[in-house]
């Protein structure tokens, strides 16, 4: 195999979900395809590395500008039409996309960049929760929605956030947990079932 192709395949294999076979398939596809396709892919990857950073306000993905002195701000933070009174706290930038797709939330976001993870040495400091507290203290939110996953890590992080943000006297809510839409009760584990029963609501 020629060194250039070998290098490409090695780089592809480092991507999540791409094994040896997939890397080979992609590599040979690019060899056969129009050169413009490879150039476009290469340019997109370089752009991603050079022009995409974390939003300086919320931690979401943001496009940087040519002005190096200007801090990156994401599309949502710079949108004046968004609801200024509600803030939804999520784990990762891709969670923002998931909530946006639902169309039920039009407020602001804050991306933690992870959850409490003792084995990885990640706690309150590493998640920058002091910065989040300052952000909330200086804004006029009516409601903070904690949308971390209903795992032990997600619940523990949410419990910490509750303790951190309670003194700010702002309404704190937690997303509902239990059975997912379309799930079969027979196949649900007992933890999910218990949470679903505990989180039941009145039928109107």
């Amino acid at each position: 195999m020629v060194p250039s192709l070998k290098r490409l395949l090695a780089a592809l294999r480092r991507l999540p979900g791409v094994g040896a076979k997939s890397a080979q398939r992609i590599g040979y596809h690019l060899l056969r395809a129009e050169k413009s396709e490879s150039y476009e892919l290469a340019r997109s990857i370089v752009n991603l590395a050079e022009r995409v950073a974390l939003c300086s306000i919320c931690g979401n993905i943001a496009e940087t500008t040519a002005d190096e002195n200007r801090r990156p701000v994401c599309e949502i933070c710079s949108d004046p039409e968004r609801d200024e009174e509600r803030l939804l706290i999520v784990e990762e930038p891709y969670n923002v996309e998931s909530f946006e797709r639902t169309g039920v939330f039009n407020g602001r976001y804050h991306v933690l960049g992870g959850l409490f993870d003792p084995l990885a040495g990640i706690g309150a400091e590493e998640l920058g929760l002091d910065k989040l507290r300052r952000r909330i203290a200086e804004a006029a939110y009516n409601e903070i929605i904690l949308a971390t996953s209903p795992t032990a890590a997600g619940e523990a992080t949410a419990a910490y956030l509750r303790e951190l943000l309670e003194p700010l006297n702002v309404r704190l809510t937690r997303i509902a947990v239990g059975l997912s839409a379309g799930a079969d009760v027979d196949y649900a584990d007992e933890v999910s079932l218990r949470l679903a029963v505990e989180g039941r609501r009145e039928m109107h």
Binding site: F116, D117, P118, L119, G123, T151, A152, A153, G154, E155, A156, T157, A159, Y160, E163, D189, E190, V191
Partner: peptide, 25 residues
């Protein structure tokens, strides 16, 4: 993988969760 025991309090209390994490580590 059938869940036999899911420690609920360890999730709802961040102090106990971090302590449990130290035990696992």
């Amino acid at each position: 993988a059938q869940v036999v025991w899911a420690p609920r309090e360890l999730g709802s209390d961040w102090r106990r969760y971090l302590s449990a994490g130290r035990l696992l580590e």
